[in-house]
Design a binder for these strands. Structure first.
Lengths: 229, 229
DNA sequence: ATACGAAGTGTTTCTCCAACACTAATTAAT
DNA sequence: ATTAATTAGTGTTGGAGAAACACTTCGTAT
């Protein structure tokens, strides 16, 4: 029995993470100023090299935790980038993930230490290597994902208003949605709990707060729901 | 300027290809009997290791050509598998592709030499490592792809009947489709050319043969069509 | 000539999606 | 206390597209 494929080439493997967040200004991505050569000082996705003793998901989880301090982040692998010269230093295959976090929830000290900043997806700096391509693919995948999973669950605070949810979907899909149609579609999914509590900041009348009903949500996603907005 | 990330681990990277084909019995997958240890003699997807001087797409193209003799195969990368012990010999990250080929068109000598055989997707042997998981993900991705691209273009012979096209979609989606509704949806895409030629094998009356109109097809796909069957 | 077998062809119904505008509730200002 | 201002909240209708549905045509074989 063999214990190695000794004749084969080995290469570096990395993960790069697109971290999406949402606030009242819209959909945002967390970027860092790269602190090592090459391209030191340029904006970049959060990344790290795969270690021998971890899976890609482990590596992505580690990178996400390292830059945000968060655990149990929703993330999804979406594509492996492998052009030979994509990293000018050394041949590296990079597997891209996107992650969804609650923007008010992460460790801002930590991100500050890393020189990380949030950028609106409509106003991003040029990124290193092929990271711009990763971002555009990641956004495309996120858009598709809205039709399959209630991604708002991950991006919003625990309690949120219908308006916030609406604006989140508008930001992700980059189009205006009809308020009444949106609400009835969301309600038809039957995954929200309406609280007896109002958010009084946004208006004089105050708007009801909602939470996701985790159990109903899980039951729904097992049955592959489809949501067309 | 650095010229290596010397402290980082390197790992083997491979590609594994799900080769889909279609004949009058249904949707099939081409498998090989693995000819080296471990798991020699067990059924497996077509795979190969990534070389230093090629991209993942290059590697997948090479593997596909090696086993089928074909060039210009439609293929799509869909996921990277990286569990630490997925290959018991040595740590290997494997990037999975699916490919669509015309089943009557490949080099059968070549596949015979490799001990390759076609298996109906509903009646497949147990595969090595995590290849069963790859297949089920690959089928799922192929199903989704039918709504975005006219995959029949790749799987059918140049000239085909409406019945063949219908049965192809039924095989991929694993559900019965209404003949008349199917035909009108396909016609509404406006990507087929009806030939003045009939296939007389399938019936006494004979059925018209069709071809894909490559130009119209390309124009459509650029505009992101959606096809709900 | 007729029996057979698959090809080919339209219509109706129904469901779901999109478009659309006014009232309610509360607070702030006067 | 009245009014003005602001956002929340709420249903209906028309149209398009999907789904359901069956009979006729054509050519061959007997």
């Amino acid at each position: 029995m063999l214990n190695s494929y000794s004749a084969e080439d080995k290469v570096l493997v990395s993960v790069d993470c697109i971290i999406f967040g949402f606030d009242n200004e819209g959909l945002k991505i967390l970027l860092i100023k790269r602190d090592f050569e090459p391209e030191k000082g340029k904006w970049s996705l959060m990344g790290g090299f795969l270690k021998k003793e971890e899976s890609l998901n482990d590596a992505a989880t580690r990178v996400l935790n390292h830059y945000t301090g968060l655990h149990n982040i929703y993330m999804e692998q979406f594509y492996a980038y492998s052009e030979i010269d994509r990293d000018p230093v050394e041949r590296t295959v990079s597997v891209a993930y996107f992650a969804l976090i609650n923007i008010e929830n992460h460790n801002t000290e930590l991100t500050k230490d890393h020189g990380a900043e949030w950028f609106s997806i409509s106003n991003m700096p040029k990124l290193i290597f092929d990271h711009d391509e990763m971002v555009s693919h990641g956004i495309r995948r996120l858009r598709y994902r809205t039709s399959t999973k209630p991604v708002g669950f991950e991006l919003l605070p625990e309690k949120f208003t219908m308006r916030q949810l609406l604006e989140l979907y508008e930001a992700i899909l980059d189009k205006e949605l009809d308020k009444r149609n949106f609400i009835s579609k969301i309600n038809s999914l039957d995954i929200l709990i309406k609280l007896n509590e109002k958010d009084m900041l946004s208006s004089r009348k105050g708007s009801y707060l909602y939470m996701f009903d985790k159990e109903k949500y899980d039951a729904k996603t097992r049955n592959n729901f489809v949501l067309n907005l």
